[in-house]
């Protein structure tokens, strides 16, 4: 059986600097892929290359065995990207932000109240995002990720600004997601040690 998401011998050049070369991975259901490396080693760039925002010098990302370029809309429908910047509007409140996202994914069947309870942000519903702390905004971004109901999670430094309890929550969520047959790619500084099938890519 072919892997759901795979990349073979990937090389990425930005400007005249080669960020990484010879990176390969093959991700199946219930797999976690951890991208490790120092600051500036290309973790975020690899995530951007996976979603096709930047072009690879060599190599190709495949989704269900087909190049991502050919199945872009289908691929985007099954992924959600928690980027470094939250992508939320600071002038809108939590519900307005999340409702916009759910309008873009009408087929998602998650209950917003349950998700907000889980992340402990239920009481922040009416506040504009501007007045929330960075950690709370990160939690809203996680709420959007859950509501998207996607099978592939791309997480860029998901622990940024989160407290100890929040970091444990992220790990729990990832574990549950993988238990339901999902996939996750995570760029992280800290050691991720979960009881799941984990691959690691070390970027130099």
């Amino acid at each position: 059986m072919t892997a759901k998401l795979s990349g073979h011998d990937l090389t990425l050049v930005r400007g005249d600097r080669c960020l990484f070369t010879g990176v390969s991975f093959a991700l199946e259901s219930e797999n976690l892929l951890v991208l490790e490396g120092r600051n500036g080693s290309g973790k975020t760039s690899l995530l951007k290359a996976i979603v096709g925002m930047i072009d690879l010098e060599e190599g190709e990302i495949r989704w269900n065995g087909r190049p991502v370029r050919e199945v872009r809309q289908e691929f985007f429908g099954s992924l959600v990207w928690v980027a470094h910047r939250t992508g939320l509007k600071s002038d809108l409140n939590l519900v307005e932000n999340l409702r916009f996202e759910s309008n873009l994914r009408p087929e998602s069947r998650h209950d917003m109240d349950a998700v907000l309870d889980r992340l402990g942000i239920q009481r922040l519903r009416k506040l504009p995002l501007r007045s929330l702390s960075a950690g709370q905004q990160r939690r809203v971004a996680l709420a959007r990720m859950l509501l998207a109901d996607a099978s592939l999670w791309l997480m860029d430094e998901p622990f940024t600004n989160l407290d100890r309890e929040g970091r444990a929550l992220v790990l729990d969520l990832v574990k549950e997601h993988l238990g339901r047959g999902g996939m996750c790619i995570m760029a992280a500084h800290q050691d991720i040690d979960l009881d799941v099938a984990t691959q690691r890519v070390m970027l130099q």
């Binding site: 979603v51 925002m53 809309q73 985007f76 429908g77 992924l79 990207w81 980027a83 470094h84 910047r85 939250t86 992508g87 939320l88 509007k89 600071s90 996202e101 873009l104 994914r105």
Partner: peptide
């Protein structure tokens, strides 16, 4: 501009909608 700065443009780019 504001979509670019807060990252929502990136989210639109990987959205399942056209």
């Amino acid at each position: 501009m504001s979509d670019f700065e807060d990252g929502s443009l990136e989210q639109l780019l990987v959205s399942p909608q056209p």
